[in-house]
Amino acid sequence: MEVMKMLLLPLLSILLQSPLCTSVTVSSSKPKVEIHEHSDAVLSCEFRTEKDQSPRIEWKKKGKGVTFVYFNNKFTSSYTGRAKIEGATLTIHSVTQKDSGEYRCEVTASEDHINLGETIVTLNVLVPPHVPSCEVPSSVFVGAGLDLHCKDKLSVPPATYRWFKDNKALTATADTPYSIDTNKGTLKFKSVSKTDAGMYRCESSNNVGAPKSCVAQQLKVLEYPLNMTVLIAGAAGVLTLSLLCCICVCVCRRRGCCKKAKKTKSTKTYNPPPPPPPPIRNLKHYKQTQSFMI
């Protein structure tokens, strides 16, 4: 029995130390990479093969379609000169937002039992805030509704927004006559008053870089001129009068007050005109048949 143990222990030790891999295996120590714009992104890819000591390594990027990054031991045109590979780990220099996406590392070991392995690495390039575009009208009339817009389409992650009036940050509460959407960048007034006039600007931020602000723009609040007020009042009066007339006509028709009188047929008989008088005979044709004596 002791002899059997002495023979089995070395055999068990050899089995434990020998690789149990029967195919190529591929993995990544960091499957999600977040890096600032214009920095170097390292996409790790580690592999182990059963027999093949020189496997084929490929990198592909998934977007609208699948494009090659590294193929046939060289980089494709868009990555030539700005990327390198060590083992199977890919490094892209000075990344931009266009480099964000899903990358796939593929290792093909033709001599292994299962000869293909792959792993996926997601790259997210962080972009600091850019100067936002601000929409502020030059003037607005008292009492009108007003929306101011602010947008930064380039920052990653998406920016949040703050509005300033005369260099003072605006904070919306239940008592303020305006509301602010910090995610969409809108500043809304239900009814503008004279006190809302001033210099307005917007600031975008996303914790990647320093906040950026647009140039402050002047907003003037105007009162309606007198002739405009009279014109609006007159138009409102005419509209009200027309509406009342229409209502009166409808009510009258429903009650039968506006029915048209039926036309009665005439009982007069037709009398033809008298015949024309007989024509006078021509005197030239008249002959005297008797003579008269006095």
Rank of each mutant, 00 (worst) to 15 (best):
A144M: 10
Y103R: 11
G145R: 09
G81Q: 10
S139N: 15
L123E: 01
K153H: 10
K151R: 12
E106P: 04
Y161S: 03
T160Q: 13
L146F: 09
E135K: 11
L154H: 00
P132G: 02
I120T: 15
V140D: 01
C134F: 06
T119L: 13
D152Q: 05
S78E: 10
T119Y: 05
V142K: 08
V136G: 03
T80V: 09
S155R: 04
S94Y: 13
R162C: 04
D112T: 04
S94E: 11
K165M: 14
V140T: 09
P129H: 02
K151S: 13
T91Q: 10
K165S: 08
A144N: 12
I92L: 09
E135D: 12
R82Q: 12
G117C: 07
E135C: 05
L154M: 11
T108W: 14
C150V: 04
V127N: 01
E86F: 10
D99I: 01
T89G: 02
S139V: 01
T96P: 07
E102M: 14
S78G: 01
L148K: 03
F164I: 04
V107E: 06
V136T: 05
I85P: 06
I114C: 13
G117S: 09
T122W: 12
T96W: 04
Y103W: 13
D112H: 08
T80E: 13
L146Y: 01
L116H: 15
S110Y: 12
T96D: 07
